[in-house]
Amino acid sequence: MEEMEKAKTKAKSYPVRKVIAPLILSLFAIVWFQFSKVYLTGADNIALREANFAIYVTPEQLQGYLEATAWTCYIVVYVGLIFFWYGLVRYVESKEVSK
């Protein structure tokens, strides 16, 4: 009985922050990739136009960066979604129990 009480209070307290946090991580990864593709490529072009070679990054490097970022972001997005789903199930479960 006491065990059940304990389990109940534990289940009750599954926090919303734990559900939302991985979703924010996934969104961050998407935004980061889009930002890199649009703004960093744009910035590099401006640097080239102004012939500022102290900050200009060669196309091979920039492409490499974008490719690595794309793959990293895929992984982060999927892992984030998995945890979001897991958290959501736990959250709904805890709501059911508390009812």
Binding site: D44, A54, L62
Partner: peptide, 10 residues
């Protein structure tokens, strides 16, 4: 910013 910081690096 205009002489020491490449747009992106590893």
């Amino acid at each position: 910013f205009n002489d020491s910081l490449p747009i992106v690096d590893p």
